[in-house]
Amino acid sequence: MKCDIIIAGVGGQGILSIATVLGRAVIAKGWRLKQAEVHGMSQRGGAVQSHVRISDQPVASDVIPLGGADLVVSMEPMEALRYLPWLSTDGWLMVNKTPVENIAVYPEVEPIYKEIETWPRNMLFDGEAMAAEAGSARALNMVMLGAASIILPLEASVLEAGIQAQFAPKGEQVVETNLAAFRAARALAEKRKSELE
């Protein structure tokens, strides 16, 4: 069993927390995991990517080869296109619709949506609204994890325990918000999956 995931977005969107929750869940299962990202100058508003590789066997390379990802989760539409070459042809592309336009020449967003929707297994949705409904726009990262969870080889209960552990220091309310965000997106993704099948 192996599952290779790329999480894409812009610095400050909470990508690392997704990887940390996955890490907790994988340790709880007794499996292996490697997670790679690049810090440095990219932290200043730049594009950020995190590679997460989960397996029940030892994982070799930290970085996923081109064409090898089972899933690309993008917190933002344009960044999703940047990582398409890494996605395996039967991989899933899950994208939050809200663009982060902190650059001078952000392209037209409609053609980006179209390109995302041509991918065989795609899910393009307003994750930010879903996070806000769950209680906080900051929970977008757990929304994206919730969507991703339908193809992860990890039970929802294990991931939820990871979320609980991750946010417990911030109080019960934050835990509840993040769990609600996770569950709402997971339900939507289940629906999307059955639509496509």
């Binding site: 990887a19 890490g23 340790i27 292996r32 995991l33 490697k34 997670q35 790679a36 990202e37 690049v38 810090h39 994982v59 930290d62 970085v63």
Partner: peptide, 8 residues
């Protein structure tokens, strides 16, 4: 890569 990747 070694410094910034996480593993068990």
């Amino acid at each position: 890569r070694v410094s910034h990747s996480r593993s068990l």
